[in-house]
Design a protein around this nucleic acid. Sequence first.
RNA 1: GCGCGGAUAGUCUAGUGGUAGGACAACGGCUUUCCGAGCCGUUAGCCCGGGUUCAAAUCCCGGUCCGCGCACCA
Length: 568
Amino acid sequence: MRFCMSDLMEMLIRRGFLWQSFEIYGGMAGFFDYAPLGNNLRRKIENVWREFFVINERVAEIDTPLIGVEEVFIASGHATSFVDTAIECQKCGRVFRADHYVKEKLNLEVDPSVGAIKEVLETYQLKCECGGSFGEPFPMNLMFSTKIGAGKGKNAYLRPETAQGIFINFRRLSNYFREKLPFGVAQIGRAFRNEISPRQGVIRLREFNQAELEFFVHPAEKKHPNFPEVSGDVLTLVDKFDKVHRITLDEAVKRGIIANQVLAYFIGKTRRFLLAIGIKDEKLRFRQHKDDERAHYATDCWDAEALTSYGWIEIVGIADRTDYDLSRHAKFSGEDLSIFIPYEKPVVVKKKKAIPKMNVLGPAFRSKAKKIAEALEKLEVSSDEVELEIDGERIRLTREFFDVKEIEEEVAGEKVVPHVIEPSFGLDRITYTVLEHSFDKDMVEGEERRVLRLKRRIAPIEVAVLPLLSREPFTGKALEIAGMLKKAGFYTDYDESGSIGRRYRRYDEIGTPLCITVDHQTFEDGSVTIRDRDTTGQVRVKIENLVGILRELLAGERSIEEFGEKFR
RNA sequence: GCGCGGAUAGUCUAGUGGUAGGACAACGGCUUUCCGAGCCGUUAGCCCGGGUUCAAAUCCCGGUCCGCGCACCA
């Protein structure tokens, strides 16, 4: 039962899961179409995600534009740190990311700007590994740029992540959640990165689907109320020193392997989500980013990685982005993006305050005396001497100019800029991994049988109705049942082409979990059979009970034998 | 971006300069009382552009896409 990836890819294209985009015009690397079955599969995975990360959390989902005005990405850092400087060898044509190359060859930290790189190249006469010399350094921006409006237009970019649409709405979002932490905001949608050389099928795309959650917490309370639900889960962790741990999340937090409880909670929840959609636990691990690997905004970051035919691939990134984004947007927009946290009881703070002696200050400083007094009153004093800055002038004051008085002040709370924990899901990679982990081959009586063992709830076609023989009255009755199931909301297929065995194989291949067969007995007692994809076993049930039974079966993984008399 | 290899029907594949063939799939018909049965028929293809030649799927050049290695992947 060796896994063969070309067999899977062949099936995905032939049966309508994935197609190369722009195929009739020669295609374009980094773009894929979701064909009917693949589209349905991804949507169903998205809905399971919503169940895990929106419905059952204090989380709301929003949808913001795919195009973002330039200001957003200047503030977020993408417009600058997203632009790497590249150098190309004139002899062998290899392209390097300049700051990495300089660090490797000269062990020199260099500002990754075009100017700084140029200077380093000239000063050190840096050559390519092949001996050739480098041409002019050039910027490599990985965002797609565009213009809004006519004429000169306004500079804009296609978003490289959905997250920014959430951060820039923080004021309204915190109001929506009535100024109470913690809360989360989710967004599912497209994001764009102009990759230099996308490869490996759907693994690296230029336009891809993300499901992101930004979970805002108090910086001093990085705890999640539901942590006990997952704290006992045992999982595989690879820390930043490449050390592998098989431990519980509780233990991982206690030993400081995972920086905080919120991060650990979402690692646990992510694992449960991935298992629920059919990713294999033994092909799943969580790996901590090394210190030089993290994005410009993150302090700690864990990737969920899945083992596929491409090796271990990153499918989820769970990062502690701290207050990086909110602080940056606060600074660039001038908006206050903090949240006021009242104390349980107002705290009485004892302060030593300076009381200016106007009769001494006045004669000494004349017109500046008033300003000095105002500044002095805001100060807390700890010594007999203070230094003030008034209109750019530094002024030292000794005790002769002020009295010190101990006063009590009531403080109702504090303003904090929340930290954000971000689980970010690559839906395309996840969908592909689910397909790989579900793809299976059986031998049935010396013949190969291909089965896509998808979890029932995410199967793109949930049920197929098949007449045993492709003639009346079987066909008419089967069509009638198919109509009934469609009306009840099931993704239903009807198929009368070829022999019954051939049709079962067709639906096995695309992962349809259940087939309904109309046979002779249907006309005697109003029953049909339900066939289970994984066991090929059949049970017989009454047509009037069919909708209810299917609903039960499709919601989970219960055995069909719980619902009817065994038939075959 | 660089290097190596590849591209023929929906899929897999034969075809070294002279009529583009097969298998599977799909579709229609017959047959068929539960797991890719059989028979008859049908649909359907040389990646794109240029060149060489009387003649190109085949040889040459450029491009696109795919695979592998290098580089890149906030």
